[in-house]
């Protein structure tokens, strides 16, 4: 069973074009990010950014290795707790606490990957789902760290490098933007490296990659661990900026949410997941005061995406550019 997610017919022209489009979109996004707190509510943008990073990290697995993980909430949540705990009880500065969250996320990712990586497709999805459910129950029980259903409350924002207080909303905002951009650049680098090329070749044709002498399982495991670690950084940053970590972050529904974000924005595109995440977070905010049943609306979007809109927003946009070129 081979897993394919090519969103455009694989031709170099469209590929390069899509790359160029991504660059332009990226530049616009950066400017928008810097100006955003003057137009939008900063707390909202920060949350959207954390989820955008989460979705991009998730997409590293789904879009570029072709493995659907249904357990990424475990990394996100575990890291949110780890970061919050380190900042609150060990007095770690925010950047160290977030790094610690990344390490914890990556650690869980390595364990999950070690168990699940030999399986593909649906098997992989179900195994990661079951494992993440296990982590959820652990989080529910180690109340000393997680606070159980009360959540880990009152996480201090602390001083960046021990110097700049993040209590200032704008300092916090630009800190989150910086974390996002650095991690996003890192993901871009992975995707466009020889390592990334091997990953894509595994996605396109795994037996071929094996016959070329690549240790496919090892590549997948490294990619999975990286994805989990980046997810952890997203979770940690969320925990610092929203100042709490709770069971919501670690519940399996969160894994479903990140899949929706990625699907909606465009699987296998670089900026797609970020766009999707922003949309989903805005939608949740909007639905909160609209009186519409949230779960149902999210479900309908899921179904529509899968049935009619599989390339996602950015994928459709790239395809549109590709068509115009020809």
């Amino acid at each position: 069973m081979s897993v394919k997610y090519s969103t455009t017919p694989s031709g170099t022209v469209t590929g390069r074009l899509a790359g160029k489009a991504s660059l332009i979109i990226g530049a616009i996004l950066i400017v928008a990010l810097l100006a955003a707190p003057y137009v939008l509510y900063p707390a909202f943008v920060m949350k959207a950014l954390c989820f955008a990073l989460f979705a991009c990290a998730f997409n590293l697995m789904l879009g570029f290795v072709g493995l659907l993980s249904f357990g990424h909430a475990a990394f996100f949540g575990a890291a949110a707790y780890a970061t919050g705990y380190a900042a609150k009880f060990w007095g770690l500065t925010p950047e160290l606490a977030i790094l610690f969250g990344g390490v914890v996320g990556g650690g869980f990712g390595f364990i999950f990957g070690w168990v699940a990586i030999r399986r593909q497709g649906i098997y992989f999805a179900m195994i990661t789902l079951a494992l993440s459910q296990m982590v959820f129950f652990l989080a529910l029980q180690v109340t000393g760290i997680t606070g159980g259903e009360d959540g880990l409350q009152g996480v201090p924002r602390g001083d960046f490098l021990g110097l700049i207080s993040l209590e200032d909303p704008l300092a916090m905002y630009y800190f989150v933007v910086a974390v996002f951009l650095v991690c996003f650049a890192f993901i871009w680098r992975i995707v466009n490296s020889p390592f990334g090329a091997v990953l894509k070749s595994i996605r396109e044709n795994e037996p071929r990659a094996i016959s070329l002498g690549y240790n496919v399982d090892r590549f997948k495991l490294i990619a999975f661990t990286l994805s989990a670690a980046l997810t952890g950084i997203a979770g940690g940053t969320k925990s610092i900026s929203v100042q709490l970590a709770s069971l919501t972050d670690i519940q399996w529904q969160m894994s479903g949410e990140v899949i929706l974000m990625t699907l909606l924005g465009g699987v296998g595109t670089l900026v797609g997941p970020a766009v999707g995440a922003t949309l989903v977070v805005s939608l949740e905010n909007f639905l909160a005061t609209s009186g519409l049943p949230v779960t149902t609306v999210i479900g309908v979007i899921f179904v529509v995406c899968v049935l009619a809109f599989r390339r996602g927003i950015v994928g459709e946009f790239n395809a549109f550019l590709g068509r115009r070129k020809h």
Partner: peptide, 19 residues
């Protein structure tokens, strides 16, 4: 009177409360 659905998620709730 205004109202909102926090969906049982504290981070949504705290965002709404701040806003």
């Amino acid at each position: 009177v205004v109202s909102a659905d926090h969906q049982n998620k504290p981070d949504i709730a705290s965002n709404i409360a701040r806003e």
